[in-house]
Write a protein that binds this DNA or RNA. Structure first.
Lengths: 106, 106
DNA sequence: TAGCTATTTAGCTAATACGCTAAACAGCAA
DNA sequence: TTGCTGTTTAGCGTATTAGCTAAATAGCTA
């Protein structure tokens, strides 16, 4: 939980997750999208991986990263549900639809 | 967007948001829930406020903070929707589908 | 006015995070 | 083996963050 929100706090790391939504990409392909060095990107990958948000599959010399969406969903939606519970009088127009509290697979 | 996820990266700040889900609380009331000094809490409030996640209403000597849920919803759900685009056409139970079984986790 | 309470600002230290270059490591091809 | 490509590790400098104490500010009450 802590590590996940920490990983989400950097814009490069969030964008990496977005890039991975279409499927696996190698570290090099991902790094090409950002104006920082590859070692710096490697550090971002490590943080995402240790948070469980991505998985690295070693395919002979190159590493293919894939998104682990369930971990992200569980953490973010779990937090949102905790924050949302019970608001009633203020009636802010919640700007998103979201799923009703369902199986959390906790 | 950036400021919002940055604000969410600290556990104290996330818990402040949870405490505020029931309604307004004063800075002092909020501070009582955490084992840090009031000036430290004041810094956390400032960060949440500058991200737009809470609002501070000055009621004569004391300040009442309230949750600005719509800002949180818009940022978090907007990000989740961007990351989700493409798979999980069924939409809701997304917290269940896991990664492929070949994860090497190198 | 003075005094009291609530909260923030100022100033500091320590820890963490981000970025870089250079070097090392892993795998494939000659 | 050597060489090439892809990726991470090592080491370092700087910027940011989190925490503290002490002091300042804002508003109330007497």
């Amino acid at each position: 939980m802590n590590a996940i929100f920490d990983a989400l706090s950097h814009p490069i790391r969030r964008e990496v997750l977005e890039l991975l939504k279409r499927g696996g990409m190698t570290a090099g392909e991902l790094a090409e999208h950002f104006p920082v060095s590859k070692p710096t990107m490697s550090g971002h990958f490590a943080k995402l991986k240790s948070a469980g948000l991505i998985l690295g599959e070693n395919r002979g010399g190159t590493i293919i990263y894939t998104l682990n969406l369930s971990v992200l969903e569980e953490a973010v939606m779990g937090f949102m549900n905790r924050v949302r519970t019970g608001q009633s009088t203020s009636g802010h127009g919640a700007a998103a639809q979201t799923c009703p509290p369902k199986g959390e697979t906790a």
